[in-house]
Design a protein around this nucleic acid. Sequence first.
DNA 1: TAAAAACCTGCAAAAACACGCAATGATTAT
DNA 2: ATAATCATTGCGTGTTTTTGCAGGTTTTTA
Lengths: 255, 255
Amino acid sequence: MIITENRIMLKKERQAQIIKQINLHNKVLSSDLSLELNVSEDTIRRDLNELAQEGKIVKVHGGALSKSYNFTATQAETYAYDEKHIIAQKTISLFQDGMTILCSGGTTIRTIANQLPENLNVTFFTVSPLISLELVEHPNTEVILLGGKLSNSSKISVGGEVVAKINEIKADLCILGVNGFDEDGISDSDYEIVQVKKAMIKASKKVITPMISEKLNSSLRLQVCSAEEVDYLITELPPEHELLSAFHHKVKHIL
Amino acid sequence: MIITENRIMLKKERQAQIIKQINLHNKVLSSDLSLELNVSEDTIRRDLNELAQEGKIVKVHGGALSKSYNFTATQAETYAYDEKHIIAQKTISLFQDGMTILCSGGTTIRTIANQLPENLNVTFFTVSPLISLELVEHPNTEVILLGGKLSNSSKISVGGEVVAKINEIKADLCILGVNGFDEDGISDSDYEIVQVKKAMIKASKKVITPMISEKLNSSLRLQVCSAEEVDYLITELPPEHELLSAFHHKVKHIL
DNA sequence: TAAAAACCTGCAAAAACACGCAATGATTAT
DNA sequence: ATAATCATTGCGTGTTTTTGCAGGTTTTTA
């Protein structure tokens, strides 16, 4: 179908079309979209990256796949595996026996859960069913799953009940997966998720944000907290790396 | 189901297909995949090596094998898949739009969750993080995850808090995975799980117990409920099968 | 043990990508 | 209204990824 009547297409409108295509076919090719929507492949790529950042689709080389595509979760997890391994080890070094740890979802955190040493004796609270399943395999950890309405996009529990439940917890650490992080702090694109993350931060003595360095200096629509509220910023880079220099006087520690 | 509708196949898409094949047949040959997916054997080999490095599959000379432990795998590799497929279809025939359905865990229930029709518009409550993840992929279902301490053995939420939460629910159906079932009713081996299942039964108008026939006439240490409390006993067998004859005057319906 | 199949390595072409820059158009401030 | 600012987009440039193939090596099998 060739559309000539509408010369100008708004960015939002175009992205909506892309989502529609993905829901329909479970995949899209950048080259196809470029032809169909009459914009350059660069623009399509930028759109796909934005939508992927917002968690609506999964970007792959050559196009994008639907999030509900059977294997995207595990594919995404193993994306940047080496980096996430380093991050996991750094994060785990902060864990101590007897601690109560509150954690959100996300593939980075899943890697941490997966690499947890056997002998560690801690209690985990999590809003992510996926993380809970990973953690429960460890013999010496107690896992408390925080229930609620399950968010379609992020697969974590959200809603007032979860927030209320989190408010009852006193945790030593909060391991927070982040989608956007810059000098202004942590940001996210979903209102419900922001509420949960805010509650998690409030309930914990220390806030740890493990993330791949490529997430640095990206920001999304909604503010979760300021950079000053972050106790440990953990990336795969050495702390003295220049990409991190802007954050040294903002967050308390960088690992 | 191998689709070659599109000339171009994304790499990740192809790898997803490979994993699907492996989960289905438990093994694949590089040469077969090369023909089916229309790429060179070199490419297949590279894919298999990548997937193996990611821990998704086990690479062997000539092809690859499925990995035993893998909770994001599709249903295909679950034990007695064909039987469970029949059971799932029978169970789903009882679902109607607008219903509130409470369900426990187990592989049989997971198959049901997986085969749920897209257009079904129901609300699910579940104590199983695994089932919740399966259900949340369906666009028209609302999923409420019931949180609590996660049981190491059965991977479902247990404890007083879950029971209390279940007591607040008024569900139309209760889909109960069972480990032991005979003329005396449902039995289980774990005290905590029994408490949760009892609460689930009390909270629901109708109780459905889907199970493969080999579970029939087995019993465990702890009693969950009597056979008379079961509204629908669903197995892969036709209702008039002799194995079921002893139950016809016990449970209300047999499918 | 010899042939066949599977494998690995390096290479090259095409495609996809990332980055900076400039032009365009829209929005806001003055 | 005009200027300043910002967002969006396309293009040039150089990089990375993907893929198939050639050639030599290893493993399997008969």
